[in-house]
Design a protein around this nucleic acid. Structure first.
Lengths: 374, 374
DNA sequence: CATGTTTGTGGTAGCGCTACCATGATGAGA
DNA sequence: TCTCATCATGGTAGCGCTACCACAAACATG
């Protein structure tokens, strides 16, 4: 009997807990709770921005977090939360530099929130439909759509009708039927045009973006409005169609620069086309910005990696995508509680970044005053 | 009494467990165990490829996994494993396009493995030292170092002496004291030079990269070797110093193109400088590739977003960074078991990507045969 | 045959966090 | 004054997995 009793009895070492599993002493929510003299639950509430926490308690917790340099453990979080959110990022050949910014924002935020992100290319809208159906079957609950996909209502409807969450990033205009993160494309183009006009230019060329994207039209409209408001007449020959690609920018720039009365400034609807314009200007031995001003749009990496660096509109692409991820997470969390929250819409601020590709028109320019043969 | 008893007694619904937390019915390790008629532990062993599992048991488990379509829950896994690995990615102004590729690979892999990734910029080596110390104090265990940081031995030593894990990505040459993921820079540059020679060029210019980076020297050496092996003499005037930036590429290209006997081909040590070379060539009304061949290195996004698209060496930056993350995870796991595993070193394959910026030398070129005044 | 030593397997206790409920303290309304 | 809602907080029980130990069975040794 005694033998058996002994084997059953806990071994001598049982007094202390078994060796701790945690090797590194990263602070946990419990440590924070102790520091702030409250329960872990309250700390959890503060972290997750829930309501119903008194202000002073919140401050104490926040203080403790800062003091301990606490970072929530993502693994534990998503494990406890039960379900891992899965989001797909679809794209349909936008400009390369835009895409990379785009991905960066999404990947970072998804990684931060422990969201599983699937990145998928589609050839066209029809292909996108197929891909979306497949992803929905696979249990993906959210979709992030950059242009031009986000401008296609049928794609959005498909997602919505299947109970998915769609968020458009950078559509020309929000439709209200789904979430969207955007900037005021019209106003941004307007501001840039005003900026160029303010420099003294009057013959200002414009390169339109991909006509499938609503944003292209908005930017063009901003340009037209600003020109009109400034009392300048628009020479329709100084407006060229592009596709947002570098290559299309070359063709468009060639047309504008080769015009009988070429412009003294060119405003391209994105940086890729602006970069192409700079290249074409150089090819014609024009100095940028002294002979011709070139401005872009988006402020992708390309804008500051060529020379001269482009004056452009900074569209906070990364932040926008990150916000889109956050938005999907929010909606997903609320789902089931509220019957159906009305789609959020977030308009972020753009910024006119002035670099070295713009200047006042050169008075001596042979272009502004071509051989008087009119 | 009865009233009290009732209030104390579990409510009528207590028969079943509290509402299940799991919404989706994804199979768990327990489900698999039941199916395979063994304990969850055994399943865990099979999943993790541990030894000491009888072959037939293993097969039964494998069968059950396949049948249930079971996928381990990542969150639970890393939570139970105890420590969340935290890795820092430090960088010190590499070219922008390189960096974005770099980040992409790291973020993706980190997200896949549920690793917390901190991205930190440093101004210089001294700053890096400070940052590293702070991060180590903060409990970061791994560091990923792109050039030029990975070429600085003092940085590596600091990390190693503090028990951190350092992995260099794309250093010129592995030192053996730490992990590294790289390509054979020498051979890649050699191959590209041979390629250009194979096209018929003899006067081949070269633009060197940032002299602080070991890789720059390796690439230069590859060029020299190939020239020598082909029996071509190198005109030292056709070798220009660059810094890996677009701007430095312009200056270097200007020098080469303006030489008394300019080259018929230029091999730039990275794509940014190659793109700048193309721009400068255009400025001089030279057609690429018909008047001059321009080749790059890295195959960053820039290479295929300008026109003509660059012939370049594809360095698998994303894969390299992803491998670096994986390497840190491996070392971290082994730590404590083996006293100190010797650092891994992984050499990945590069690839010569032929696009549209190269061609044979133009026979009519005024450059290959300048006015016969020698 | 009494001991070690090696297998293969199972049990248990968390990892750090959050969902869910319970509770005490307030304030509002009867 | 006594309800009853509301707020702020705490307690508990897991999420799915693995580290650690226990232990039986199969062998090897003396």
């Amino acid at each position: 009997m005694s033998t058996k009793a002994e084997t059953l009895a806990p071994p001598a070492t049982s007094g202390r807990k078994r060796a701790a599993r945690r090797s590194n002493a990263a602070p946990t929510i419990t440590d924070v709770a102790k520091e702030a003299q409250c329960s872990p639950m309250t700390v959890s509430r503060v972290i997750n921005g829930e309501e119903n926490v008194r202000e002073d308690t919140k401050q104490k917790v926040l203080g403790a977090i800062a003091k301990l340099n606490y970072v929530p453990n993502r693994a534990a979080r998503s494990l406890a939360a039960g379900s891992q959110l899965r989001i797909a990022l679809l794209f349909d050949n936008p400009s390369a530099s835009y895409l990379s910014e785009f991905l960066m924002g999404a990947l970072e935020e998804a990684s931060r929130r422990d969201i599983y992100l699937v990145v998928q290319a589609c050839e066209n809208v029809a292909d996108a439909q197929k891909v979306i159906k497949k992803l929905l079957d696979g249990g993906i609950e959210g979709f992030i759509l950059p242009p031009p996909l986000c401008d296609d209502q049928s794609v959005l409807d498909l997602i919505r009708s299947s109970g998915g969450i769609a968020v458009a990033v950078g559509p020309g205009r929000a439709t209200g039927s789904h979430g969207a993160v955007l900037i005021d494309e019209f106003q941004a183009a307007y501001d840039m045009t005003r900026h160029i006009i303010g420099l003294g230019h009057e013959r200002i060329g414009f390169i339109i973006g991909n006509p499938d994207q609503v944003a292209s039209g908005r930017r063009l409209l901003g340009y037209r409005s600003a020109m009109k408001d400034a009392g300048l007449t628009i020479d329709e020959g100084l407006i060229a169609q592009g596709q947002f690609t570098y290559r299309s920018g070359m063709v468009a720039a060639e047309k504008l620069l080769g015009a009988a009365k070429p412009p003294t400034a060119i405003f391209a609807s994105n940086d890729d086309m602006a970069a192409a314009t700079v290249a074409m200007a150089h090819r014609r031995h024009l100095d940028v910005p002294n002979d011709i001003t070139v401005c872009g749009f988006d402020d992708t990496e390309l804008a500051s990696s060529i020379w001269p660096e482009l004056t452009t509109i900074r569209q906070p692409i990364r932040e926008m995508t990150a916000e889109a991820v956050a938005m999907i997470a929010r909606v997903h969390k609320q789902k089931g509680r509220t019957a159906r929250a009305k789609p959020e819409q977030l308009t972020l601020a753009y910024q006119l970044i002035r670099r070295n590709s713009d200047a006042g028109p050169s008075l001596a320019s042979s272009f502004s005053k071509p051989p008087g043969n009119t």
